[in-house]
């Protein structure tokens, strides 16, 4: 074997690997760069407190979708966090064939395509209620968020050292008190980061909202009525033939990216500040 040849090959391969890796994150920079370039001009104070204008008129804002997204996230969190935390504790605490099955079911839930979840929320909420509504969109988003909450809760509860449990029982605490006063507070950081990850997963979801929250050109605060959301607005405006609306869609995309980046940053901060030393 020619060893110089081998070394050259080795170096060429390394170069190739670096190049491909660099190329694969190029789209990230392109997306951020182009969104900023196209979106920045749409953004001014009006953008945040005005309603959209009809096509042909320039200006206008996205207040309806900001309010809608906020409401959807709050409702979805309120639905999924209690039940998700409970189920996460359950899977971490109880080991039997039922929890084994449950873990598989949670994986199935996590793998469900978002559009299918949209169909489900349509069948479960929209149809019985007889119309599109914010609440049906929130149900869809809650179903998407649920597995994230369950899994992070399970993981963190499992990480709490067994000795804390022993210490609590040794003081005569009941099982319930031990979970609520010792295990849950010690897992708070993990559960909170689960909520943040879950929020950043649902804040940009469009597919499950198409036939649930549906969209609404006006600000709506009633959960029983259709509502707009940031990603829905981006979709509708991006697919429209109007120049001005594309600009609004870019502006809204920029807002959405900033929110997602912000959540990412928040996640890192929570990881630091809430760290419980064992």
């Amino acid at each position: 074997m020619n060893s110089r040849n081998r070394v050259v090959k080795d170096n060429l391969f390394k170069l190739f690997v670096f190049l491909l890796a660099a190329l694969s994150i190029l789209p990230l920079f392109l997306i951020i760069f182009q969104t900023v370039r196209n979106g920045i001009s749409a953004i001014n104070p009006e953008f945040f407190y005005k309603l959209p204008k009809p096509p042909g008129e320039s200006g206008g804002g996205i207040l309806n979708s900001l309010v809608g997204s906020f409401m959807l996230v709050i409702l979805a969190t309120a639905f999924s966090v209690p039940i998700g935390t409970l189920t996460g504790i359950f899977i971490a605490e109880v080991r039997n064939s039922f929890t084994e099955l449950l873990r598989t079911l949670v994986n199935i839930l996590q793998g469900l395509p978002s559009i299918v979840i949209g169909i489900l929320a349509y069948l479960w909420v929209v149809k019985p209620m007889g119309g599109f509504s914010a609440i049906s969109g929130a149900v869809a988003l809650a179903v998407m968020m649920l597995p994230v909450i369950i899994k992070t809760t399970e993981e963190t509860v499992r990480l709490v050292p067994f000795t804390l449990r022993e210490a609590s029982f040794s003081l005569g605490a009941t099982y319930t008190k031990t979970i609520i006063k010792i295990i849950l507070p010690a897992s708070a950081r993990g559960i909170l980061s689960g909520i943040i990850v879950g929020t950043s997963r649902i804040i940009g979801e469009t597919a499950p909202l198409l036939f649930t929250a549906f969209g609404n050109p006006f600000v709506n605060l009633n959960p029983m009525k259709p509502t707009d959301a940031l990603p829905l607005l981006i979709f509708n405006y991006a697919m429209s033939p109007y120049e001005e609306w594309h600009k609004i869609a870019w502006g809204a995309s920029l807002v959405l990216i900033i929110v997602v980046l912000g959540l990412n940053l928040l996640l890192k901060m929570v990881g630091k500040r809430w760290e419980t030393k064992f």
Binding site: S170, G172, K177, I182, P185, K277
Partner: peptide
């Protein structure tokens, strides 16, 4: 019958003060 373990295990989310009265907190 109280117990103290091999490795110190104060409750990480509680202050020194709360740790001492943890038994009362936990027993409601």
């Amino acid at each position: 019958i109280g117990m103290v373990f091999q490795k110190p295990n104060p409750f990480p989310t509680m202050s020194v003060y709360e740790n001492v009265i943890a038994g009362y907190i936990l027993n409601g």
